[in-house]
Nucleic acid binder design. Sequence first.
RNA 1: GUGGCUGUAGCUCAACGGCAGAGCUCCAGAUUGUGGUUCUGGAUGUUGCGGGUUCGAAUCCCGUCAGCCACCCCA
Length: 422
Amino acid sequence: MMQILPGFRDFYPADVAKRNYIFSTFRRVARSYGFLEVDGPFLERADLYRKKSGGELMGQLYQFVDKGGREVAMRPEMTPTIARMVAESGNGYRKPLKWFGIGSFFRHERQQKGRLREFVQLNCDLIGEASPAADAELLALVIDSLRAFGLTSQDFVLRLSDRNAWVRFFQQKAVVENRMEELLQLIDKIERQSEQETAEKLAPFDITLQDIRDFIERRDPASFSDLLAELSARGLSEYVEIDLKIVRGLLYYTGMVFEVFDRQKRFRAVAGGGRYDRLIATMSDGRVDLPAVGFGMGDVVLGELIEAVPAAEKKMRDALAAQPACEIYVVIADETQRPQALKIIQTLRQERWNVDFSLTPIRVGKQFQIAEQLQARLGVIVGSEWPQVKFKRLATREEFACPHDVLAERLKTERAPLIFDF
RNA sequence: GUGGCUGUAGCUCAACGGCAGAGCUCCAGAUUGUGGUUCUGGAUGUUGCGGGUUCGAAUCCCGUCAGCCACCCCA
């Protein structure tokens, strides 16, 4: 049997329903923050990622030479595309830009739970505003996106950090500019590497492990006061913790950085992002110079987290149940009336009901059984009493009759309230 | 890319050297216009794939592919 490529997924109906739930929730929240949806190509010139994304990501690039001899790559993340788009046409838009996108990304790495080779990401970028107010707006969007799934501060935490705090710290320690990135990567690994190894690597800089630990412990309040005040005013303080151990691997980050984790640390990072004030200038060779801050949130870990939190799982189930594949099942009780039934089905579909029926003659009891299985809310019975038809609330078994030509009008009052806005 | 664990029906699993099974799901029926329960019957497998050991392999061994876990890194 031909099998799917490792790290790629098929989406059966239930999987697509869940994915759509996640997408539509993303869209709803991003729009509520005034963000506009954008998208870019799946394939980019490989140079786009060589230029700034940095080391580890390069090894994970799906890249090949196209028929025109160009080195191309499947996009591993959204930010370089956004930066390229802004570098190209950003001058024509009022600042700040608030853009978001939802799309697939590709990384060729060994797959595990929460990490696949194709994944879907919500990406939000706020471009053209350097103040902490912009950082706060973006972090609030991250937090509210997760809250929209029914997740609370019991379930997740945003670990906030700032590369500039480290840069200032290392400058005090007389570290030269071109060794800075090396030290930042060392901080990034501090939890995973042995103390001895870290200490040895710090020694040449005349910095001790204790110096680093003290600085992490101090949490450098000055770096975060404006941002935290903004979040506090929004009532979101409980979702944020300062954690200077977060540095992130990508080379283009310049200031504030963060990652979101589940509180119990059962999963990988749910979301991550930060400030990239120089990337757009680099992309445009200095023509467009805009500060920017953005984040990505993947569907894989988020999905796992939702299913691990009962309240969030229930919220998703309820939302999906509010969107039945079939709202009205038309029961054809008398086969000679099938043409009339088809006419009614057509009318109801025009009225934007989800309508299903049996394509072949089957007995009435079976038709009701199928209506049940499809979780239809209403049955419409077309039979020998034509031009009268009947409709039935399947949950309560209440049955009503009316002339066929007023059915569509009559059913308007039978619509379920919209619980979830897709 | 390196190491460890695991691959049995669509799904969850049992059988662990001697006839490949159960639950759920799916399909059909229980006398021709009204249901979720119940009952009856049915379908589905080269036991991931290839080789080896053995009278005999789902079971033991080797390889391979895939999944999970760790490293690496992140969504």
